[in-house]
Design a protein around this nucleic acid. Structure first.
Length: 578
DNA sequence: CTAGGGTTAG
């Protein structure tokens, strides 16, 4: 579709004397925006404005602005999109429901939850009623920012205002409750919805089955999937992936066969298994290249290169402000973006808002990248690194399209085991590749930098990321807090915690608290550790098994100091017998 | 606008 459109577009432009009108431009900006070609959108916008100056027509309208804002958001530059919104208002175009919806989606997806809430309020002030999609986006954003309470309030408001929930709404809520440790609530909601008959679909089942797998209730997950199938919902690759990973992680080796027996009437599992057999035989045919013994990343020699690779779009570009902007222009920021697009300094997004493409079942014989990912995840989950490497080689040789998803999982395994050279190689490959790295990639990189003892670099990268419109999610914050804390930069870790909660509006979760308690305990700051434990309980965040281990350590440390204190007092007493 | 990868302890 994209190729055909581009083809058509190119031919149109080559035709002599052909001119787009506003509609023509709008259609192109919308289309290329959807396909992630922001530079092209910006230059079209530029052209459009130049033409309208000369002729007095063909100028951008509200629709143009909305398409552009959408394009900027999908390229991950939500911060810029917010500025363009303001400029748009200034140039006499009042935002409509579409403008607000696009921005609320963008903000919610990129963890700018405060901005999302602000625009949500503004939208209503200007007399627009948010629809289900707006509510769904906002709810998802709130749950991802760990703001369960606010999410519940928003949902209540939604019901109060008479906006009808859809399946998606409930899926977002159930998934959100699971992610926020409100497991019981989510199960209850699922069962109630099922009783009512409506409001559950295949994705609901998939979400619940994944949770059951995570908790190790594999048998239950299996029967749920059976029920899912019996009710006519398609058991797709995502669901199968969840189950298979669950089986492997819990060492239930027969699970796959059981799954086969349990599911009738679908060809997906047999297809996957057939694929797996073929894969294994191809892997056996390959000579084994022992990758598991690679050395750790040595010396800091490649560090600067590392940083450059991390921020391809940042290396060359200077400050966004200043420049040769026309102060009479109604949209100086837009102009700057457009001129930057021309000078190639704004081309690569830090990471796009859309993740890897979703799975669609194709023919039984198709080996798509998602299947590769499925198995890669399985091997990596079991720590079978060399197997995963071979798999990686195979699809690399076959020229299969990579997604950052694949790179992330294999890289994360390397980083975890300390094979930084390998991770380095993967990074290089990603740099050359068209697919944008996503936030997961950055997360793994920062984790690796921390393990290399380069917390300072992690810090620098964080700085650049935030300055240039990237975003941080909970996982990223948690990783960074951990890296800084482990490097002994406890104060900076605390600052980051402050930034996360106060500025970004993201609530800490179990992992955040565990990390903070651990870091402070190890640094001997027992009082602070205790403070975070208290904060955790007051926030209604229930401890998990990791907390237990950390608290054991904290308890022992406290015991030690108490003992020390006691002995100091005793010594003092002996010195001054009164 | 939702689900499978990336974060914490030993």
């Amino acid at each position: 579709m994209r190729d055909q459109f581009t083809d058509f577009y190119v031919r149109l432009r080559k035709r002599e004397g052909f001119e787009f009108d506003t509609w023509g431009y709008n259609i192109c900006i919308h289309a290329f925006g959807c396909w992630g070609d922001l530079p092209l959108c910006l230059s079209l916008f530029d052209e459009m404005k130049a033409k309208s100056l000369g002729t007095g027509s063909f100028g951008p309208d509200l629709c143009t602005y909305n398409s552009l804002i959408h394009a900027i958001c999908s390229a991950g530059k939500v911060k810029d999109a917010l500025i363009v919104l303001e400029e748009m208002k200034g140039s006499g175009h009042d935002p409509d429901a579409f403008s607000y919806r696009i921005l609320i989606q963008g903000c919610s997806k990129s963890y700018r939850i405060e901005d999302a809430l602000r625009i949500f309020a503004e939208m209503q002030c200007n007399g627009f009623l948010p629809d289900v999609i707006v509510y769904n986006s906002l709810l998802d954003g709130l749950f991802k920012a760990r703001r369960v309470g606010d999410a519940c309030n928003v949902f209540e408001k939604m019901v109060r205002d008479g906006v009808r929930s859809t399946c998606w709404t409930y899926n977002i809520i159930i998934d959100g409750l699971f992610r926020n440790e409100r497991v019981e609530g989510a199960y209850t909601m699922f069962h109630n919805l099922k009783k009512k008959g409506n409001f559950v679909d295949g994705i609901t089942y998939s979400i619940v089955a994944l949770q059951l797998c995570k908790e190790g209730h594999l048998q239950e997950a299996l029967s749920l999937v059976q029920e899912m199938e019996a009710r006519g919902f398609k058991v797709d690759l995502v669901t199968i992936t969840s189950l298979l990973i669950g089986f492997f992680k819990h060492g239930w080796w027969d699970g796959t066969d059981t799954l086969m027996k349990h599911l009738r009437d679908i060809n997906l599992v047999p297809a996957v298994l057939k694929w797996k057999t073929e894969l294994e035989s191809r892997m056996n045919a390959l000579q084994s290249k022992s990758k598991d013994g690679t050395r750790m990343f040595e010396s800091g020699g490649n560090i600067s290169e590392f940083v450059k690779l991390m921020s391809p779009a940042l290396a060359e570009s200077e400050d966004f402000s200043g420049g040769d902007s026309d102060e009479w222009s109604s949209s100086p920021h837009m102009d700057r973006l457009a001129s930057m697009a021309q000078s190639n300094s704004y081309v690569l997004p830090l990471f796009s808002l859309s993740r890897g493409q979703r799975v669609q079942e194709r023919g039984a014989d198709s080996f798509d990248i998602d299947m590769v990912n499925t198995f890669l995840s399985l091997f990596l989950a079991k720590g079978k690194l060399s197997l995963a490497c071979k798999l990686f080689e195979i699809f690399h040789d076959a020229g299969i399209d990579h997604t950052s998803y694949t790179y992330n999982s294999i890289m994360s395994s390397f980083v975890k085991k300390g094979y930084f050279d390998e991770a380095w190689g993967i990074l290089h490959e990603m740099g050359e590749h068209v697919c944008p790295a996503d936030i997961g990639t950055y997360n793994v990189i920062i984790q690796g930098l921390g393990k290399m003892g380069r917390a300072d670099l992690a810090d620098t990268i964080l700085d650049r990321l935030t300055k240039h419109g990237g975003y941080l999610d909970v996982t990223m914050y948690n990783t960074l807090i951990n890296v800084l804390g482990k490097a002994g930069r406890v104060d900076e870790a605390c600052e980051l915690f402050e930034q996360m909660t106060a500025k970004a509006g993201i609530s800490p979760d179990v992992v955040t608290f565990n990390t903070l308690i651990e870091v402070h305990s190890k640094a001997g700051r027992l009082k602070d550790a205790y403070k975070f434990l208290k904060m955790m309980l007051e926030a209604g965040c229930s401890p998990n098994h990791v907390t237990d281990t950390i608290l054991d350590f904290l308890g022992k440390e406290m015991e030690k100091t108490r003992y020390k204190k006691a002995s100091i007092i005793r010594d003092a007493d002996e010195d001054n017998p009164d």
